[in-house]
Amino acid sequence: MNDPAHSRPKARPKSRLGCGILIAPLIVLAGLGALGSKAWGPSRADYPVQGIDVSHHQGAINWPQLPGQGVDFAYIKATEGADFTDPAFAANWQAAGAAGVKRGAYHFFTLCRPGAEQAAHFIATVPVEPGVLAPAVDLEFLGNCTQRLKPTDVQGELTAFLTAVEAHYGQQAVLYLTGEFDEAYDISARFDRPLWLRSLVFEPRFGARPWTIWQASNFRRVEGINGRVDWNAMRGPATPQ
């Protein structure tokens, strides 16, 4: 307001554009540099609590090796849809707890089955235990069925899922979201829950409120896990104590 456009020297807008042209590639290069680093993660000074999310795709995990590598928490896949149980869930759940890793369970929400049926499956699979992280629900298109429902239908089925799960576990669920799913179904604006947002390398710029968990990488390597693993930062009231 104090520097209106019409009062600037004519060369000023051009120089600012030039800076923008230079800065944009630098940002891209910084991102590419992070992608090339198997050990990259968000700054510990800014986000001291960090962890992983896993499923049977990681194979056998040597959980006692993880705390010493900065794994403060782990979300473990439990269920998908109304009838799939992750075959590694029980082993991962027990071993993570024994290793002292703060743990939570998550459910992959499919668009092909009623929310109430999915909630019943999750409840039958994940035990109620004190001191664990809030249950999480994975909401994304990748790996989902090809059916695309109306936003009101998705919101209705998710409401049914959350109502049952939250009543059973006595905690608000965490909503894992990609930008595409949130945009398509207006989830973060419609459901006032902690957000777990996926945005590789760069902090999320979507969602109706600040994130509680940020999935920052899907290429982290840690000893005790074969191959890549998702890496996350956590902040706010969901931070494990």
Rank of each mutant, 00 (worst) to 15 (best):
1 M>R: 10
2 N>A: 15
3 D>R: 15
4 P>S: 10
5 A>W: 13
5 A>H: 14
6 H>F: 11
6 H>L: 06
9 P>Q: 11
10 K>Y: 02
11 A>K: 10
12 R>G: 10
13 P>C: 08
16 R>G: 00
17 L>T: 10
19 C>P: 03
20 G>P: 02
22 L>H: 12
23 I>Y: 11
25 P>Q: 06
26 L>W: 12
26 L>C: 15
26 L>G: 09
27 I>C: 11
27 I>G: 13
28 V>G: 12
28 V>A: 12
30 A>N: 14
30 A>G: 10
30 A>W: 10
32 L>T: 08
33 G>H: 13
35 L>P: 03
35 L>S: 07
36 G>N: 09
43 S>I: 05
44 R>H: 06
45 A>E: 10
49 V>I: 15
53 D>A: 02
54 V>T: 11
57 H>F: 15
61 I>A: 03
63 W>S: 04
64 P>M: 03
69 Q>S: 11
70 G>K: 05
71 V>S: 04
72 D>R: 03
73 F>T: 05
76 I>L: 07
79 T>I: 02
80 E>Q: 07
84 F>G: 01
89 F>P: 12
89 F>I: 12
89 F>H: 05
90 A>Y: 15
91 A>I: 04
98 A>D: 14
99 A>F: 08
105 A>V: 02
107 H>M: 02
110 T>Q: 00
112 C>H: 09
112 C>D: 10
113 R>A: 00
114 P>I: 02
114 P>D: 08
116 A>S: 04
116 A>D: 08
119 A>R: 07
123 I>L: 09
128 V>E: 15
131 G>K: 04
131 G>E: 13
134 A>C: 07
136 A>V: 09
138 D>Q: 00
139 L>C: 01
140 E>F: 06
142 L>Q: 03
145 C>D: 10
145 C>V: 03
147 Q>A: 06
149 L>P: 04
152 T>W: 13
152 T>D: 15
153 D>V: 14
154 V>M: 01
156 G>L: 13
157 E>R: 03
159 T>P: 05
159 T>F: 09
160 A>W: 01
162 L>F: 02
164 A>R: 08
165 V>P: 04
169 Y>R: 03
171 Q>D: 06
171 Q>A: 08
174 V>Q: 14
176 Y>K: 13
176 Y>G: 07
177 L>M: 06
178 T>H: 07
179 G>T: 07
184 A>R: 04
187 I>M: 07
188 S>I: 06
190 R>P: 00
194 P>V: 11
198 R>W: 10
203 E>L: 06
204 P>E: 05
204 P>D: 13
204 P>Q: 12
206 F>Y: 15
206 F>P: 13
206 F>L: 07
210 P>W: 09
213 I>C: 07
219 F>Y: 11
219 F>D: 05
220 R>L: 12
220 R>V: 04
221 R>L: 09
222 V>R: 00
223 E>N: 14
224 G>K: 12
224 G>R: 01
225 I>V: 09
230 D>S: 12
232 N>P: 05
232 N>Q: 08
237 P>W: 10
238 A>D: 14
239 T>F: 01
240 P>M: 07
241 Q>W: 09
